[in-house]
Design a protein around this nucleic acid. Sequence first.
DNA 1: CCAAAAGTGTTGGTAGTACACCCATGC
DNA 2: GCATGGGTGTACTACCAACACTTTTGG
Lengths: 241, 241
Amino acid sequence: MISLRASDHIPQLSIDCVIFGFSQNQLKVLSPKLIFKGDFWSLPGGFVRQDESIDQAARRILEERTGIKDIYLEQFRVFGETDRSNLSFWDRLTELNGEAFVAEHFNRKELEWITKRFVSIGYYALVDITKVIPVKMEADASVEWYDIQNLPPMIMDHNQIVAAALVSLQQNLDQKLIAFNLLPETFTMNEVQQIYEVVLNKTLLRSNFQKKILDLNVLERLEKKFTGKANKAPYLYRWAQ
Amino acid sequence: MISLRASDHIPQLSIDCVIFGFSQNQLKVLSPKLIFKGDFWSLPGGFVRQDESIDQAARRILEERTGIKDIYLEQFRVFGETDRSNLSFWDRLTELNGEAFVAEHFNRKELEWITKRFVSIGYYALVDITKVIPVKMEADASVEWYDIQNLPPMIMDHNQIVAAALVSLQQNLDQKLIAFNLLPETFTMNEVQQIYEVVLNKTLLRSNFQKKILDLNVLERLEKKFTGKANKAPYLYRWAQ
DNA sequence: CCAAAAGTGTTGGTAGTACACCCATGC
DNA sequence: GCATGGGTGTACTACCAACACTTTTGG
């Protein structure tokens, strides 16, 4: 039985997290898939306990899924249309899995609580994908990274939430210098550029990009990185603010 | 008796609106003062009905207070600390006005509903101050414009909400070209500059400002405005997008 | 020595800043 | 005429895009 402990939480208010990671020159989003029949993907989300702030709730949800405590987090928008509810998703779930099967996992009171209209606060997070060990929750069949250009169809308006998060990320990339949160402790300039290119969805001139980033004076240059490739070894950099 | 019709609304979720206006070379914020003893100022706010979206709720609240239908509106942040509740305000209210007086205006069920912890969605609005006729609601003693630099002390965290709204307005001023929403249909270039100066809190060079705004190609130049003053008559402009 | 990628330098255009100059108007 | 504020023009600077050149490395 999946417990929501409804009474401990603020009703009709949820949090949805778009967790961005970067690997293989692709921007990725973490998405759990539910155990039920029917290919239900979603965003990692949850509810706000009465005794925690909304930021704390978002951090708790992120830590539950990724195991990481200090995560870069940004609240980017609230989704509050009148038709935002789990109801149609739930109908389809029941249709495909049978009333009895669903009843095994949720009691009636919780079902009533969770199928109401929900206002959802959208957060996006930037993580070093190498540090994340995706954690399956009770109702998860899998928790995987998906290319943002190739996301599975998600329940409710979660695909739109991802799209809105990406727009917000694009706007903040230069202004808040947050790209480095997607990288490990040390990285090469080429890796930074790849993030900029894939987030902004356009190619950048290498020489100009290098100059621009170095002129920010936020990076510390370390020793060179031996790659074993037939070219000059690139420097490693570290965020030094 | 002030009716909240609690059951029709999403519990523990509120909307607070920072309504910006511009006059006498000052940025103003609209703030109602409550009828009760004790100088309680607040932001125009309200709750979200089950049958309306959060944007619709914000528009309804704004229309109730200003009488204007088409208002420029921007959702800028959610405030969700655990200690966000009306409780301490309510205690002070009761202390100053007496239990009996408060009981005249609110029944117990509503009191219980309204003194819970609330998560509040912050919106800011830009209005042509000449079109606004501030409307007093049931519990309002007055609804006045206050200079943003000289706001009265407000209940809860409303002063901080105003501060956050101003930061957001500053960031969006150039990017979204929203300053014109604070002006009447036609205006002079000097009026636009005054808005920029008071919002950004710095002086700008007149000649460069004029060039920058005109180069945006978003204004239509109309006939000259006769001011009766001892100087060249300025052009009138109109937003032409 | 060559290809490939990294690092740095040079050039030209554009946008922003500071300031100068002229124009209209009422006293 | 003169002070005042409005409109436009000019020089200087800073930044950014495009491209060229040099350096390092493995084969």
